[in-house]
Amino acid sequence: MYYTTRNSLNSLLNEAFGYETTNMMRSDIKKEDGNYVVEIEMPGVKKEEISLSLEKGYLNVAVKQAKKQEGVEYVLNERIKGEYSRNYYLGDGFVEEDIRASLSDGILRLVFPQVKKAEKKVISID
């Protein structure tokens, strides 16, 4: 599995707050029991605000949250709200069913197999 830089859908948001995009969706990736485990920080994000999609070997994790509450006076506002996403390169051969996702205590945990053996292609020498 390879790993890519993230795409922020909302670079304006980051600019406004002066944050580097690396401050968002911080992730740990580890090998565990024949699987890759990706743990992504998502404090204050609800399950229904996360969408996961798989395309051309990339897993896209996107968050869409309502921005600041209307009519509420903030005396301090450091937390990031809005839309952002990050891509993780898994490699070809994965289907949606291979990826298990769970959200707990602000951590999104994705688990998928290290190798899809059935997908291994043997190139014959003529």
Partner: peptide, 8 residues
């Protein structure tokens, strides 16, 4: 066994 570690 970590490949990427960004979290503190």
């Amino acid at each position: 066994r970590y490949i990427i570690r960004e979290r503190s």
